[in-house]
Simulated scan of single mutants.
Amino acid sequence: MSQLGFRILPINKRPNQDLLDAFSEVVTPHISDNMSRMSAVGTDLRPYHNSGRLVGTALTVKTRPGDNLMVHKAIDMAMPGDVIVVDAGGELTNAIVGEIMLRIAQKNQIAGFVINGAIRDIAAFQEDTFPVYACGVTHRGPYKDGPGEINVPISIGGMIIKPGDIVVGDEDGVVVVPLEDAENVLEKVKKQQKVEEEILASIANGTVDRSWVNKLLAEKGCEDYDTN
């Protein structure tokens, strides 16, 4: 019988490396735009590392706020390229990871951390390029009692993250792409990327067409006294 709330499950399906490599070449705003602007892993999550992008496979952890026992287990069982995504309830009273866990994760070739909670030893993170996204910082350490679950669906900021989904993070934040939709999203993202490159080129050479602004205002019934 499954011990609901205190269990460790496997990742049943993973993205291939070619797909991960392709997502490493696109930005989170383009991904978000092509997921109907409804998907983001919480606006409270901000990067705490020095620089660098995050792309990898979601290894999910759901833990009691302030407790990191299952996060330690996740670090030990993660495969190279996995991103440990932790729902710790957004609680900032106790840190979920610190420098020791950072160094172990690096040694294990984990791709990064996404922590719906707090971290500590912030200087170590800020001086490093290991991707870490969190909601805040506190010096108070965690407990190690459990319970918790590994590789179950979790929710952060209203977005569902499933084990095996693709996690992408950059300066604008974190977005998670459902594995079953990843190829379709990537195709749309590449099209938008090309369109925006053309727009930027037209701005640079002075040929950008801004007539759509007035056209849209007129369609919406805006009363316009601008004579310029």
Rank of each mutant, 00 (worst) to 15 (best):
M1F: 04
L4M: 07
G5W: 15
I8A: 10
Q17W: 01
D18W: 01
L19W: 00
L20N: 13
A22I: 09
E25F: 04
V26H: 10
P29A: 06
P29R: 10
H30E: 14
D33T: 14
R37F: 04
M38W: 05
M38V: 08
A40Y: 03
H49N: 13
H49Q: 11
N50T: 01
S51Y: 02
G52D: 06
G52C: 02
L54Q: 02
L54F: 03
V55A: 03
A58W: 15
L59M: 15
K62W: 05
T63W: 12
T63H: 11
G66S: 04
D67G: 00
N68K: 05
M70S: 08
H72S: 12
H72P: 02
K73I: 14
I75M: 14
M77P: 10
A78H: 12
M79S: 15
I84M: 06
A88Y: 13
E91F: 09
L92K: 12
N94K: 15
A95W: 00
V97P: 04
I100E: 11
Q106C: 09
I110Q: 01
F113Y: 09
I115P: 01
T129R: 07
V132G: 01
C135E: 06
V137G: 02
T138L: 03
T138C: 04
G141P: 01
P142V: 01
Y143N: 13
D145Q: 05
G146A: 04
G146H: 03
E149Y: 04
N151E: 12
N151Y: 10
V152M: 09
I154R: 03
M159W: 11
I161Y: 05
G164W: 13
G164R: 09
V167R: 08
V168D: 05
V168G: 08
G169H: 04
D170T: 05
V174K: 00
V177A: 06
L179N: 11
D181I: 01
D181H: 13
E183M: 03
N184Y: 14
E187A: 11
E187K: 15
K188A: 08
V189N: 00
K191W: 02
Q193M: 12
E198C: 11
L200V: 14
S202M: 11
A204Q: 06
N205W: 03
T207S: 10
V208L: 12
W212H: 11
V213D: 03
V213C: 03
G221A: 14
C222Y: 15
E223H: 14
N228E: 08
